[in-house]
Design a protein around this nucleic acid. Sequence first.
DNA 1: GGATAAAAGGATATAAATATCCTAATTAAA
DNA 2: TTTAATTAGGATATTTATATCCTTTTATCC
Lengths: 138, 138
Amino acid sequence: MFSNSTKYAIRTIEYLLFNKEGGKNTVGALAKELDIPQPYLSKIMQQLSKSKLISSTKGRGGGFYLSEENMKRPLIDIVICIEGKNVFRECVLGLPECSDDNPCMLHEHFKKFRDSLRQSVCKDGIKFLLSTSQSQKP
Amino acid sequence: MFSNSTKYAIRTIEYLLFNKEGGKNTVGALAKELDIPQPYLSKIMQQLSKSKLISSTKGRGGGFYLSEENMKRPLIDIVICIEGKNVFRECVLGLPECSDDNPCMLHEHFKKFRDSLRQSVCKDGIKFLLSTSQSQKP
DNA sequence: GGATAAAAGGATATAAATATCCTAATTAAA
DNA sequence: TTTAATTAGGATATTTATATCCTTTTATCC
Ligand code: FES
Ligand code: FES
């Protein structure tokens, strides 16, 4: 479905949502907590950082965190950042073009999923998790 | 999103829907028509055939086609056949378990997509395409 | 200012997905 | 019964994704 890189990216951002602005997390800590290979996660964080999907400070005491701006980014941007280019503009079955006029067999199904990712921003993750979880990590 | 193999599989089955039972298609013809590497598609067809998602006859004049039984299979089976095992039971973000009790950030979004693939059978593709297309290949 | 801790970035190794090639088995036609 | 066309299946090559390693830059603490 998604590549490992994308999964890691979303899960990490999801985790960062619980460390509101100022709470910095080192790659080492994140990798351990989320059970992701540390150097690999490091690369992914770099990519996300370049695309302004997460924030970071270098040097001692530094780390990664989400700014208010970061939290407003739609979920789909995370996927696009890692999976590259217009993965969500393309047809899910790899047809040269995705359009309502010439839909593939999964077009309607996929469109709903895609649109829901477009409309949700990272911040919604907090609301969602807090509203549905009983024993979530604080 | 999906692997190339899965995309090829679904697109090919979609194509076969227009050649109702009896109309046999060689791998060569399918590969050419759908712009898929021929020997690679051949492997995929073998896999689909083993899982009874498509039918085939060997020898001269043989080829692949869909039986009525094949057409009743849910779309999700195609994905599972290629992508392997329980790709659709797993969490889309790779968490060890997917459940309503401990949902990931994409759980609700993904669940809808997954369920729509579970509920649609191949045959629906015909209905769907015929109802929405203006200038589809016959 | 020197030591330390962190992200940033380049280069490389490993594993998996994608693709190709070649031979065997099967069937139909000639 | 031979020949040709086709799927089935094994073995292998190529490309891409995944993962690791090492160096550089930046900031903090002492
Ligand atoms: S045409 Fe395939 S997803 Fe839109
Ligand atoms: S928990 Fe992630 S998809 Fe269900």
